[in-house]
């Protein structure tokens, strides 16, 4: 195992390459997923505001 990690003395360069590549690829996916969940929350809020506006408009119409 230690021999595998050492990579004939090039371990730092090889794992430094693979680790950063892996982290960036995973990070990109996390960022896209976060963007989607934030977007969903915003759209949900937009939906609630609209239905609330509609209700108050209907209330107003009924009252007058």
């Amino acid at each position: 195992m230690a021999e595998f990690l050492d990579m004939g003395g090039y371990g730092f360069y090889i794992w430094g390459s693979y680790l950063v590549t892996g982290v960036l690829m995973v990070l990109e996916v996390i960022l896209v997923r976060r963007r989607r969940s934030q977007l969903k929350r915003r759209l949900d809020r937009m939906g609630r505001m609209q239905s609330h506006e509609e209700e108050t408009r209907l209330d107003h119409e009924i009252e007058t």
Partner: peptide, 27 residues
């Protein structure tokens, strides 16, 4: 990952369209 991102892009740009509004009302 690009298909995931383009879906966000579509939802954002088309948020006022009928088909997105329908999804919003369904939640």
């Amino acid at each position: 990952v690009v298909l995931m991102r383009v879906r966000c892009e579509i939802l954002e740009r088309e948020r006022h369209s009928d088909w997105v509004q329908e999804m919003v009302s369904r939640g």
